[in-house]
Design a protein around this nucleic acid. Sequence first.
DNA 1: AGCACGCCGACT
DNA 2: GTCGGCGTGCTC
Length: 800
Amino acid sequence: MAQIARVVVDVATRQTDQPYDYAIPDSLTGQVEPGMRVVVPFGRRKVQGFVVALQAQADFNGKLKPIQSVMDLEPVLNPELLALSKWVAHTTFSFWMTTMQTMLPAAMKASYARQLIRTAPLPAAGQALFGDRDTIPYPETLTPVQAKQLRQWLQQDLVRLEYVVKNKARAKTRQGVRLPDAAKLASTAQTLSPRAKGQRQLLAGIQAAPFSGALPITTVAKQYDVSPSVVEAARTAGWLLPAVIEVRRNPLDLAVKRDQPKKLTADQQKAAGQFIAAVTERQPRTFLLEGVTGSGKTEVYLQTIQQALNQGRTALMLVPEIALTPQMVHRVHARFGSAVAVLHSGLSDGEKYDEWRRIQHHQAQIVVGARSAVFAPLTHIGVIIIDEEHETSYKQEDSPRYHARNVALKRAKTFHCPVILGSATPSLESRARAEKNVYTLVRLPERINRKPLPPVHVIDMRENTGNRVQPDFSPELLTALNTTLARHEQSVLLLNRRGYSTQAMCRNCGWIARCPNCDISLTVHRSQHELVCHYCGHKEPIPTRCPVCHSDKIRFFGSGTEKIQDQLQEILPAARILRMDVDTTRKKGGHAKILKAFGEQKADILLGTQMIAKGLDYPTVTLVGVINADTALGLPDFRASERTFQLLTQVAGRAGRGDKPGQVIIQTYNPDHYAIQYAAKQDYEGFFKREMFVRHQGKYPPYYYTVLLTISAPQETVTAQEAYRIANDLKPLLSPTAIVLGPTPRSITRINNRYYYQILVKFKKEPALGRGLHNLLQNSQSLIKSKVQVAIDFEPQQIM
DNA sequence: AGCACGCCGACT
DNA sequence: GTCGGCGTGCTC
């Protein structure tokens, strides 16, 4: 008989990252299962914990405390997810508790409260504190005098301190009614006042055609053609019984018009055929679907999903957050209706919780969502699709630093199902695996409409710099913008830099506005009348005089989207310009709103950061302009070329999707750079070969694995010291083929008054490294007192 | 993460 | 003497 529960507690630290044994009290026998949340005493407090196993015997040699209560009626993590959470924790060097919480909707994260309970009469000061209540929330602020008093009362047992674990997750409910038994209903006819006309009508209606179960008041009113207040009255009178109804907060418009599978082109058919066979035969294979923009990947996905459903299986489809547009969601929804659950950041916590529950209760067989949807509680998965697989947003940047692609591959192995990775510009890692036949390469080389890709002009911005009236616009781009405008067609302009200006500088003495907390200059946000730090969020007013030399010659350098918008408006006064960046899309739905306005042709030019490059599919766009293709190229990251190529290729694909021919203009100071050259030719395979050579030379992925250690502390000397110590501890663990770069200060060494140093390890095969890194974290406890933090990132996406 | 325990300097 | 400063170590 299992009397012991092993519980991982909600205290995310290295020391407590392990299961603790708890006794299952008699009152809870049979109610505790692995994967359930429980409330347990931990030290003096009460905390939430996850039951990870049941045992007959305790591992712990001491007195066990009992579980206080069980938070769930059924496990929130099924055995597959429980095992997966452990695997993710281990492979990403994060806490088990954290990975389990990551799998659940935010609404299920516990919140904690302390409360004071009066157990005996208190002196006057206590009366003031408690008033006429015996239980009060723990006061937010206490004066030293109050604190001292409270301590005394606690010691004298006049007051008790209690810890409460709160479960935030609540299904949304509505007031409803259900029917009493037939006899009661029949007797009501006599007791009802003759003047209660409405209630009589309702009663007659119900007797003629009774409803079953519980229905919302409004539904009943509508069904029997009475006013809701009549139903309300019937409930108050007691002949309709009150009921609480769980309603689904509804993120999808359920009244969507259903569509049918489309006829596939020969290429699509060939691809879909392979996927469908793999789904049917339950092969745990990974496909890399390399398809140019507009080649109809989505239709292939949808038909593959259909096959999974036909087989009685479920399907998981991951899409980058930014591409999870209403258009995209609508498409899947139109095909599969209410079998689809959508998980993305646009939903409220409550909505996410509801969607999650629908999946858990098998009411949804298809999940479409961003990164974290990879943990959706689906069972019997028949296929996993990752669209735009090269997107860096599939890697979570903070702990747990998991890559959705790796998690998907792991789950696919468990479920014996295929994974389809789709992209027009696959990541080098994936494309290289296809080269080695680890993945099966499938190509969709042509656009569905057979339209050629639009011509791309690369403009050398080094020429005629001095002569240009508008330093940010080449004559070619201006002409194209003008003619497009004249033809009443739409343009998309990409500038990967938000704000107004990247620098505010004094022309007299050279002073530059810098962030007080970070080693970076402040960005000018003119509409906000502020200087903003894009790293820590620090804000200050724009100075009118130089704080050093007091001159008024403060000038702004480096153009951001705000400034370009101003300039553009000046050059093209007639143009209606929409700006889309983090600043204009911060509000919920802001993103969709701008896209909708542009789609309805309420603007001529859409100017924005890289978010405009993804998922935007408007046939009316005939001009795509890239104002500065070099922003990403200059970064000290080995993926700079890959990023640039992907971004340019993607944004170029936005032009000429309709009947009218499109064109693309790329402005650059590096016109000869291969990333720009291959992007202009839309030649992925060419770029792949060239970049593979570069990576081989530099000993970078996909030829080598990478692990990035980031060491940070409030003092730079401490940070450097610890970084060197860690590097020295690490080196003896490695074989001679491994390469250790650093420690080096990060390019922005100080952010939010913490200094960052990093160590990059490149290796091919290091069996001892994983263990070594885990030990390192284990021992890093000693670093806590000097406020040193160590973060380990396996296969980092950002190396800066 | 909290919280207790414990060991030292500054006060009612 | 004791109150409270924070350094150290534990929580089944």
